[in-house]
Write a protein that binds this DNA or RNA. Sequence first.
DNA 1: CGTGATAAGTTTCTGGCATAAACATATGAC
DNA 2: GTCATATGTTTATGCCAGAAACTTATCACG
Lengths: 389, 389
Amino acid sequence: MGAGDATMAAEQTASPAMRARGSRNDQTRRHNLSALLTAVHYGGPLTRAQLTRDTGLNRSTIGGLVAELADLGLVVEDSAAETGAVGRPSLIVRPRTDVVSLAIHPDVDALEVGAVAIDGTVVGRRRVALDAPPSAESAVQIAAAEARFLLGSMPGVRVAAAAAAVPGLVAMDASTVVDAPHLGWRGVSFGERLSDALGIPATVGNDANLGLRAEWGYGAAKGHDNVVYLNGSASGIGGAALLGGVMLRGGRGYGGEFGHMMIRSEGVECSCGRTGCLETELNAVALDAAAHDDEALDALARTLARAVANLECAFDPDVVLLGGFLGTLYEEREALIETEVDRHSFLPKAEGASIARAALGGNRLLIGAAERAFMPLLADPAGTVLIQR
Amino acid sequence: MGAGDATMAAEQTASPAMRARGSRNDQTRRHNLSALLTAVHYGGPLTRAQLTRDTGLNRSTIGGLVAELADLGLVVEDSAAETGAVGRPSLIVRPRTDVVSLAIHPDVDALEVGAVAIDGTVVGRRRVALDAPPSAESAVQIAAAEARFLLGSMPGVRVAAAAAAVPGLVAMDASTVVDAPHLGWRGVSFGERLSDALGIPATVGNDANLGLRAEWGYGAAKGHDNVVYLNGSASGIGGAALLGGVMLRGGRGYGGEFGHMMIRSEGVECSCGRTGCLETELNAVALDAAAHDDEALDALARTLARAVANLECAFDPDVVLLGGFLGTLYEEREALIETEVDRHSFLPKAEGASIARAALGGNRLLIGAAERAFMPLLADPAGTVLIQR
DNA sequence: CGTGATAAGTTTCTGGCATAAACATATGAC
DNA sequence: GTCATATGTTTATGCCAGAAACTTATCACG
């Protein structure tokens, strides 16, 4: 009889908190439309035959669902490219590239606005250099002006939503920036203000979170469901984690602040009030200072390795993704870091997580924010209104 | 327009890994049966009217679903207790107490077997004291004998499944004990062997995980969806985390090993090969030694506080739950720990997690293991066969 | 070319599921 | 004892995916 039988079902989670929502027939339809649009969103153009296999749904059902998505203006069906296979060629379903989301990234020295199509390509971007960190209000104004310009250059385009990637704590409402120290924002309803200025629903997400989302969808974390992400930037170390395919959020939305994980008990005092935080021990300044000092660089690499080992022991990820200067440090000291992590790893060897460098570079936050903006549409393709420009 | 509109849907997770499963009509039925059984499982007896409100389903639908659950022998409907309210009294739906799961807990000095009814009450338990840690084989034999005895005393009872709580790493197959150092088990297919010996499907879970599951369903974590759990026992410190209502597992099932979180960089060498692990700095021996030394106890409390602060910064939980000797330490140094955690907390004050002591005591692991065993039944009430004894 | 094999799109019909609406019933209030 | 209220029950309806039969587009082979 074996234990295997029960395994699959047992992995599911039953909520004791009486969150018992009933399911209706129309939710089935919504779920299936969502599954198809999500599949072509991440997987690129797919044939109807592939969708049939992947979803396990019937040919007829796929036909109907794809027709509805086409009616909604979300996908187009092309004749097949020649495959050389026998049998009637299957139609290719691809997301329409004239459906975009707006991505906004305010940072200390610049503000970027991008338009990202539903297939994940950045179809337009504008960057405004800034002398000083923008106030929330000026960020909204600049973003709105740039967005208008951007959309003006793309006639006929339809906009799903907008989202901003902000370096700081974002509340569960996906609008309020609770504390973005480097921008000097505290308790700002940035999403709501953006929304009003753009005339488009806008949400806000933490930059590390959205960075991981992008890497997950289109970068180095693609295909992995358990990922720890560490990103080193001028403003410190941001962290995020994807666990079982779900983004770590926490009760208030502040989960994943690995930059303030204690890494040295007798360490330097951090701006956050604690001592020995990862980002006070390992940061852009320290890395610059160690640029021509092999031992200093080794020490920093060892610090990173301990952080990675600690995170592996807490999360047991498939991949630990390193971005920004942490990615650079990793490339420069790959062997050292790998052996140090192995040495410190609590988990059975050979099974450990792999370490990888983040892949998407300068487009990462724009793609991540757009991902966030596309989520309502992906979750309910028929129930989400697009804004025609 | 505001950001709020998009928020709910945006919190959902769309999987890029092309896990696009289609949903069929019969899954709707299964989902709803599961939702109802789960509701009465955790929420105790509920009226049909309450179920109607909680699920959002139609009166008629609830009627049909409850009838099916009753036909399956999983629930009974009673006439209402007098509520004093106007209107026709609603029938009370309660889980049948003659449906049980077997819980098995092998430990270094004893093996416990319990029978837990579907309403969460422990209806029978047997404890066999042991001179030495049992081998996996003898644990199977003892468990099977005790289970036979236990079930023999409960005629007419039907068994859903069995599950064991094991102090060690358990693989994703929910059967293989990869490494249970205190028992000396390595790479044992304990679940499969149990299954064969009992004649009942059996799975295996990590003890801390199952402890948290129990506290979540029936103890101090009830109603919270983001919980970090730390349990101190003779064999060290076990950890587990519930994140957004989902148990942290990791890619291989080893997530949540917070006992091996680095807490002092120049610390003592741990059996795991690392240094300064939480459980080498704070354990039963150290606590005993500090029993009559206020300063030593303060130091241990500070160590605990740092661990809690670290976990809060990574997970942003609603509650940090402390069990075993950590619960004792917390009770003895509550004020100190609270202020130290606040001082070290990275997150905005006042919003921080509360700390609480685990509630379920000696029944915790039996309840947790039974929870695990009930999961397939809860997930698919109509598709899971009960074993008649 | 023309025929057959193959695979996929399309059409039609069916069954399951939740719902709405109408009806029946059990309680409290007056 | 009647009414208001809330809930259980029965019946008819609409939606959705699936199955089966049919149609279409390609390749292979002679």
